[in-house]
Each structure stands twice: as structure tokens, then as C-alpha cells.
């Protein structure tokens, strides 16, 4: 059993690197990656985008959530090579031109964060929701962030922040 694991390991680490082209926060990225590397590690270790966090590495906590082709995904469960050709947005890509986005401002205003470790993932799940549903109900917001664990806030201010951001974004869209 141990020997088999070792062999698998060798195979992984000596496997030839593969080409990855994708768009991260609007910028074209091209890199040679280990086919076993997760998208999370690619973002953090290769691109040095440390905003995206790892809370469990098993897809259970949501701290590593990023948006890939419009969908919120746990980047710890996605291989980097699966992101070939994809558009990826991380927390670093939320603001525009040095300004915070409405969603980020509402998180601040509603005190929707304490330790802040779940916040990037929480923001990305909320962003993905508002992109596909600009007028969500409270239940839809809770559903959208149900995969993002937060131990500090009790979620209430997060839900309020997302609902408030939705309203402000709709108003901004109309004006």
C-alpha cells in the first residue's frame, strides 16, 4: 500500500508540466503547471494572489471560492488545468479602478466580517449570485452562501450586506 502511494506520488511529481492559458481578473495568464496542482495553489503559489484562502482543502468550507466562467467554485477542488481557457475572478478582481465595489462597501458598512478569513470566499459566492440573480430573496442569499462557513459573524450581517448590495446595484443599474 505504501509503495503504491509512493509510486503514485512519483508519477505526479515527475509528470510533464502542461500549458495553462486563462484569464484571471481580466488579465491573460500563461503558465506551465503541474497537472496535479489545484487552482487554489495556482492562484496563491504561482500568481501570488493570496486573497483566496484555504480553510479545509476538501471543498467543505468555501474559503477558497472563486468565480470561474460565472460560477462560484471551490478552487481547492478544481485542478489548475481545468481552468484552461476560463475566465476567473478572485477577490482581488472585485474592485474597479482603485474603487471598492458596491458589494465590498456594503460588507464594510454592515460589519459583515470579523476575522476576515472567510470574507474573500463569501464575497465571491455573493458576487456570483448577484451576477445571475440581481434581485435575490433572503432565502436565495442564504442558499448561495450556505457553502461558505463563517465562525465569527453569525451570518446575519453578511445576508444583510448582500441584500443591500443587490438593491444598490439595481438602483445604480437603473440610473
Amino acid at each position: 500500500m505504501r509503495e503504491m502511494e509512493s509510486r503514485m506520488f512519483e508519477m505526479e511529481s515527475t509528470a510533464p508540466r502542461v500549458q495553462l492559458n486563462c484569464i484571471v481578473n481580466g488579465e491573460a495568464v500563461s503558465a506551465m503547471v503541474d497537472p496535479a496542482m489545484t487552482l487554489l495553489n495556482f492562484l496563491r503559489k504561482e500568481l501570488k494572489l493570496f486573497g483566496t484562502k484555504e480553510g479545509c482543502g476538501e471543498g467543505e468550507c468555501g474559503a477558497c471560492t472563486v468565480i470561474m466562467n460565472g460560477l462560484a467554485v471551490n478552487s481547492c477542488l478544481v485542478l489548475a488545468v481545468e481552468a484552461g481557457g476560463a475566465r476567473i475572478t478572485t477577490v482581488e478582481g472585485l474592485g474597479a479602478g482603485g474603487d471598492l465595489s458596491i458589494l465590498q462597501r456594503e460588507f464594510m458598512k454592515h460589519d459583515a466580517l470579523q476575522c476576515g478569513f472567510c470574507t474573500p470566499g463569501m464575497l465571491m459566492s455573493a458576487r456570483a449570485l448577484l451576477d445571475r440573480n440581481p434581485d435575490p430573496t433572503m432565502e436565495e442569499v442564504k442558499e448561495a452562501i450556505a457553502g461558505n462557513l463563517c465562525r465569527c459573524t453569525g451570518y446575519v450581517p453578511i445576508v444583510e450586506a448582500v441584500l443591500s448590495a443587490a438593491r444598490l446595484e439595481r438602483e445604480a443599474g437603473r440610473s
Binding site: R44, G51, T52, K53, L94, Q104, T119, P120
Partner: peptide, 21 residues
């Protein structure tokens, strides 16, 4: 007063660094 926490901006932009990072 219900002031916004001083660390909020770093934490919503992903600029807050932890030992993890």
C-alpha cells in the same frame, strides 16, 4: 458610535495577510 472597523478595507479587498499567506 457604530464606526466601521479599521481592518474592514483590508479584509474586503483580499489585502489582509495572515500567517497562512
Amino acid at each position: 458610535r457604530p464606526e466601521i472597523r479599521v481592518d474592514a478595507r483590508d479584509k474586503v479587498t483580499g489585502r489582509a495577510l495572515y500567517v497562512h499567506d
